[in-house]
Design a protein around this nucleic acid. Structure first.
Lengths: 156, 156
DNA sequence: CTAGATTACATAGGCAGCCTATGTAATGCC
DNA sequence: GGCATTACATAGGCTGCCTATGTAATCTAG
């Protein structure tokens, strides 16, 4: 048990450390959350605000304000959903796609000195690490949802 | 090229996702930064504020305020460094060590449903992932320091 | 066809976490 | 003794996230 407990703490600690380091050292003009949102919109295509919030695992108001920032930069635009006047469909502008490209390049530039030292085996190992983290997150999120559903059922 | 670039983005994205998920779902009473600081003080033993800031890769004012919160909770205490009246030596109180234990248990509880599903191979894979991330961070930080030093040399 | 529930989103207010710039007190050096 | 340096504190600001709540559009039951 101590074994797995220790591992759980290690995973979270290492992931958090790397993330914090990247956000400190990757000097992009674009804040993390905006960059994430740009990528998300690109991935999903025209989407509603609530869909984006669900996909990003954040609250709807948080997504609303983040989107307003993207719009202020001219990186995203919204059209009223023709099927439902309450909702809007969000998509990237040309400038938004360009900004996303800049962000990705800047982020890589911060990591590249480290990556340049890696041999093929280390690259493969990192690739496997990414898969392992993604897998863990999927399981954790699924388990949390199950718990939440069970809780909701109790309150009905 | 595209291969490594893609991997770089993947690593950062996956680590960030896991971290964000954990901070949302691990319902401990103690905020992330405080928890980190508790662990850091435990690891380093009596230390100066500036040392803690360096170890945590944050600024000295940030560490000052975080420490004030730990002190307010009664989890850390400081004594004036007998060798230098400007500095103080920070250490955990008994309550602080207890709080650290609670945090670790709470954090594990959030992850444990996911961990319970893992077989031995998956655990080993995660362990390797942690090592890979740590290694990457060490390389990245070292590379960044080298660049910083070179820059500093230029300004002299 | 209309009153109430529901849905989609916006706004308000608050807290964590981090930064830079700058002030203050102790120390070290010439 | 005077001046730079060092260790830390304070001020002010930004991102990023939350909950609570308001508003307008839509759906639904009667």
């Amino acid at each position: 048990m101590t074994n797995r407990d220790e591992l759980g703490n290690s995973v979270l600690r290492s992931a958090a450390r790397l993330t914090r380091w990247a956000s400190r050292n990757a000097s992009f003009d674009v804040p993390m959350a905006q960059a994430r949102l740009l990528a998300l919109i690109e991935e999903l295509g025209p989407s509603r605000i609530s869909s984006l919030a669900a996909a990003d695992h954040c609250s709807q108001p948080t997504m609303s304000t983040q989107l307003q920032r993207l719009e202020a930069e001219g990186w995203a635009e919204r059209i009223v959903d023709p099927a439902d006047a309450r909702a809007s469909l969000i998509s990237l502008t040309t400038a938004g796609r360009a900004a996303l490209g800049r962000v990705r390049r800047a982020r890589l530039q911060a990591l590249s000195p480290a990556f340049d030292q890696l041999d093929a085996a280390a690259v493969a190992r990192l690739q496997d690490a990414v898969d392992a983290l993604d897998d863990l997150l999927v399981r954790a999120a699924a388990a949390a949802d199950t718990v939440a559903d069970a809780g909701a059922r109790h309150t009905r």
